[in-house]
Amino acid sequence: MTRTSPDHESPDDLPLGEGVLAKPSLRAEGLARRDALAPDVREEAARRLVRTLLALPELAGVGPIAGYWPLRSELDPRPALAALAERGHRIALPVVSEPSLVFRAWTPGTPLVRGPFGVEAPGPEAEVLHPRALLVPLARFDRACHRIGYGKGHYDRALAALERAGPVIAIGVAFSVQEAQTIPAEDHDRRLDLVVTEAEIVRAPHRAAGAAREA
């Protein structure tokens, strides 16, 4: 289901004119909301993510697909990644590197190594892939598919690098409680193409318009 209007507002949902100064409070509030979710809510969200991603037309036949290994209270995409791999997609996981992320091949059950920031990732022997779709973790999102990450800019740089070789679908993965009314966007911020939560699919305006024309 794709919705077009927000269903909640927060005191820290500041207007676009507040700019960068709004981002720290938006990020902190989103992470606090995410941290507060009960274990059963998290487990159900992970199960729903499997069904949602397998049904996404944007992922039909695309590959490779990059996921992420969950940190702290992030929505767990591992069951969905296993299901996508079973369907025949090549799966990659990000490795923190400079100047941007590197994506290495992963198959379910393959051992990982702990890298920078405590991120579990494939080892240096794993093949480097150039994904055409990315599952992107985040702190906050809005209905225009703007995103607040963790402040390091890793995914903005990675998407810019990957898109030099062709289009890449950027899919935010979040809980619905992480939605904000408005995210202040800067010139270097790359808008997501869609955001998937346990409750719905939110498509960026250009994607939603295209879907409406096809319908």
Rank of each mutant, 00 (worst) to 15 (best):
A212E: 15
Q178A: 12
E163W: 01
G88W: 11
L192G: 01
W69P: 01
A36L: 10
R90L: 08
H89W: 03
L16V: 13
P94H: 00
E163P: 04
V196Q: 00
G166Q: 01
D76C: 13
L194I: 03
G88E: 14
T4G: 14
P108K: 09
E29A: 14
L84P: 03
D13G: 09
L16D: 13
P116D: 09
I91N: 02
V202E: 05
L37S: 03
E18H: 14
P24R: 08
T2L: 08
K23G: 04
A126M: 12
G67Q: 00
E58W: 09
Y155R: 08
D193N: 07
L56R: 06
H154D: 04
L192E: 02
G172P: 06
P111H: 11
A66W: 00
V62T: 12
G88F: 04
A82W: 02
P111D: 10
A38R: 13
L138K: 00
A174T: 14
G30W: 05
L162I: 04
L26G: 06
E198L: 08
E18V: 13
A174P: 12
L135G: 05
P184W: 07
K152E: 08
R34E: 07
E43V: 14
D193T: 03
R157W: 06
G118W: 12
G123M: 13
A209L: 10
H188G: 02
S73G: 04
